[in-house]
Computed example of a mutant assay.
Amino acid sequence: MTDRKAELAANLGRVTERISAACAEAGRKREEVTLIVVTKTYPASDVRLLAELGVRHVAENRDQEAAPKAAECADLPLIWHFVGQLQTNKVRSVSSYADVVQSVDRKRLVDALSRAAVGAAREMGVLIQVALDADSDERGARGGVGPGGVERLAESVAEAEGLRLDGLMTVAPLTGPYEGRPRAAFDRLMEISSRLRVAHPAANMVSAGMSSDLEEAVAAGATHVRVGTAVLGVRPSLR
């Protein structure tokens, strides 16, 4: 085993143990939580090693990096998630490889994704990004729509051709009433998810939690956690 593969395997093992322990603490089954490895800034070679180690879900946040990486790894049995703020002029490219777009926060983006999905003759999963630091239906500082705008945006996704409403996503706010309180933020997301599922029962995916707060997300009920640094190491740009 190469040094890098051994490093990734060890990191992956530690993260898996953290998820298992969090599930046990919360009285949940381990299979209820899916790990998404965020591979931004890391090369396609790392994605290949992760696939060899059993990872099936990977995420990127910048199309200019994600598109060539996804193309290079097109032969792998991976599910690609796009998690960054998405501009409409990047939608056609993103729709060529992303299986799920987790950062949908406005009607204009829904319309653009629908057109692209139809044009590519494929279906894309969509998560509505909820901004817990925003009032009503305003957009948050890190993207996302305020809690008051979720229901209306969900209807737009559900009615859009080529799109599938999978659920909700959030990033723990850095400011506002949930600053430093990730568990409270994730509990709030679960409340919004419960209301959403009354009208859209299949929209049961809840993406929350990252390297620093995945335990809080699992405790709250998240179905997917997005982990980058704890698996791949400190981002190259931060070294």
Rank of each mutant, 00 (worst) to 15 (best):
Val198Gln: 09
Leu53Gln: 09
Gly162Ala: 09
Ser96Gln: 12
Gln64Asp: 14
Leu214Ile: 03
Val126Arg: 03
Ala141Gly: 00
Ala160Cys: 02
Cys73Thr: 14
Thr88Ser: 15
Ala131Asn: 07
Ser20Gln: 14
Pro173Arg: 14
Val130Phe: 03
Leu196Glu: 11
Glu32Lys: 07
Ile19His: 04
Arg164His: 03
Asp133Glu: 15
Gly84Asp: 07
Leu78Tyr: 01
Leu12Ser: 04
Glu138Ile: 05
Arg188Val: 10
Leu132Ile: 13
Gly13Cys: 08
Thr34Ile: 11
Met190Thr: 14
Ala10His: 03
Asn11Asp: 11
Val33Asp: 10
Gly176Trp: 01
Ser156Cys: 07
Ala121Thr: 14
Ala112Asp: 12
Ala67Ser: 10
Ala21Phe: 00
Ala120Gln: 05
Ala202Arg: 12
Leu113Gly: 04
Val227Cys: 06
Ile19Asn: 07
Lys40Asn: 14
His81Cys: 05
Gln85Arg: 06
Thr39Arg: 06
Val55Ile: 12
Arg122Asp: 11
Arg122Met: 06
Ser194Ala: 15
Ser136Arg: 08
Ala112Val: 15
Leu232Thr: 12
Ser45His: 00
Arg183Thr: 09
Arg48Cys: 08
Ala112Ile: 14
Asp135Cys: 07
Asn204Gly: 13
Leu214Glu: 04
Ala222Phe: 01
Arg62Val: 09
Gly146Ala: 07
Leu12Met: 07
Gly143Val: 10
Pro182Val: 15
Asn11Trp: 01
His81Met: 04
Val15Met: 13
Arg226Pro: 02
Gly144Lys: 05
Ser136Asp: 15
Gly228Ser: 05
Leu113Asn: 09
Leu232Cys: 07
Leu163Met: 02
Gly146Asn: 07
Ala158Trp: 01
Ala22Val: 13
Lys69Thr: 13
Met169His: 05
Asp46Ala: 06
Glu138Thr: 12
Leu53Val: 11
Leu214Phe: 00
Asp135Phe: 02
Asp75Ile: 14
Glu191Leu: 10
Val145Tyr: 04
Leu109Arg: 08
Asp99Phe: 00
Gly149Met: 11
Glu159Pro: 00
Gly149Glu: 13
Asp46Trp: 05
Ala160His: 01
His57Ala: 14
Ala131His: 02
Cys73Ile: 09
Lys40Gln: 12
Ser96Arg: 10
Ala219Asn: 02
Leu196Asn: 03
Leu35Asp: 10
Gly144His: 05
Glu161Cys: 05
Pro77Cys: 13
Glu191Ile: 10
Leu168Asn: 01
Pro77Val: 14
Ala208His: 02
Gly180Leu: 07
Ser193Pro: 00
Cys23Leu: 09
Arg188Met: 09
Arg181Lys: 10
Thr175Leu: 03
Phe186Leu: 04
Ala208Asp: 09
Ala141Ile: 08
Pro68Trp: 11
Tyr42Arg: 15
Leu35Ala: 06
Ala112Met: 11
Arg62Asp: 12
Val91Tyr: 01
Glu72Tyr: 00
Leu109Met: 12
Phe186Gln: 09
Ala44Gly: 08
Arg106Thr: 08
Val218Ser: 05
Glu52Val: 06
Leu8Ile: 14
Gly162Thr: 11
Ser211Tyr: 02
Leu53Lys: 08
Lys90His: 04
Asp213Asn: 14
Ser114Arg: 06
Leu196Arg: 05
Leu196Gly: 06
Ala134His: 05
Gln64Leu: 05
Thr229Pro: 05
Gln64Ala: 10
Val58Asn: 11
Leu53Ala: 10
Gly54Cys: 07
Tyr178Trp: 07
Leu196Thr: 12
Leu189Ala: 09
Ala222Trp: 01
Gly84His: 02
Asn61Val: 10
Gly125Val: 11
Tyr178Ile: 07
Gly143Cys: 07
Glu72Ser: 13
